[in-house]
């Protein structure tokens, strides 16, 4: 609290000030809502003071810096992720998504998750599919609630979010025969079959990336832990990824190096 000064002088000043203020206000009042009033506002907007300019300039430099850094890491990473149905392409999703997380909230199976902060900075918070708690039954809740058009009904991915890839050195059936869990759970007729040696093989044109095989794969519980091999014997990857571009089953190394990397000449 201020108000340390007192005495008749100060009080007289107050009255003077008040009188002046009322007079100026009354004068100014006449100009209210006139063109000059609005023009004055616009003038104040277009001629900021030096201090305002410094603040805004500083903030703008930081913004531009973040954007440049983001753009750089994004190009460098050139990554692809398994996105929810309706994502047209990485570029279109990134341009339209404002990370409102409505799709994340809408997904009844906790599949759609915000991307964590990674080297690919601009993708943080955008939706990706994580088959940890469920699989996609294409209920389309995420597409229905998306307010920005980042997930749209027109995109080819509304019925196809990726393709499953068998990992040779992690799949139990590749080592010993007998395991057919993924083939049994696969909801798409003919997408997963057993070859003549009892190993699962993916028909990549039929597979829609629902992820039930990845979710149910029992490899982690059937094998001893091996840091060199992938955890599960089958994973869903983006169709634009380098992993998807290689035919047939993959080694753990092929899978891990190509999972989130865009295939040569892939769609941007």
């Amino acid at each position: 609290m201020g108000a340390t000064a007192s005495g008749p002088d100060a009080r007289a000043n107050v009255t003077m000030d008040a009188a002046e203020r009322i007079a100026t206000d009354a004068k100014a009042d006449a100009a209210v809502d006139t063109v000059e009033g609005i023009a004055a506002d616009m003038k104040a907007l277009s001629h900021p003071s030096r201090r305002q300019f410094c603040i805004a300039g500083g903030a703008a430099i930081v913004l531009a810096g973040t954007a440049a850094l983001g753009q750089m890491t994004h190009q460098q990473a050139d990554a692809v992720y398994v996105r929810p149905p309706g994502a047209e392409s990485e570029a279109s999703l990134l341009a339209k998504c404002d990370r409102c997380e409505r799709c994340v909230q809408a997904c009844p199976y906790d599949l759609v998750q915000p991307r964590p902060l990674s080297f690919d900075i601009p993708t943080v918070g955008t939706p990706e599919i994580v088959y940890k708690a469920g699989f996609c039954d294409f209920c389309m809740e995420c597409v229905r609630v998306c307010p920005t058009g980042a997930l749209s009904w027109d995109a080819p991915t509304v019925s196809d979010i990726g393709t499953a890839k068998v990992i040779k050195d992690a799949c139990v059936a590749w080592a010993w025969e007998g395991c057919r869990v993924c083939v049994d759970v696969c909801p798409v007729e003919g997408a997963l079959t057993l070859d003549e040696r009892g190993r699962p093989q993916v028909n990549e044109t039929l597979c829609n990336g629902c992820g039930l095989c990845e979710l149910e794969c029992p490899a982690p519980s059937l094998r001893a832990y091996d840091a060199a091999a992938a955890e599960k014997g089958i994973y869903v990857v983006s169709r634009e990824s380098a992993a998807a571009a290689q035919p047939g089953a993959l080694t753990t190394e092929q899978f891990e190096t190509g999972r989130f990397v865009r295939a040569e000449g892939g769609l941007r």
Partner: peptide, 23 residues
């Protein structure tokens, strides 16, 4: 400061236009 906020907004719209994502 509406002016400073306005400058920030304009810059970030220009930058968003260039890098194609909401910066």
């Amino acid at each position: 400061s509406l002016a400073a906020q306005g400058i920030v907004l304009v810059v970030l719209l220009v930058v968003s236009f260039i890098v194609h994502f909401p910066v």
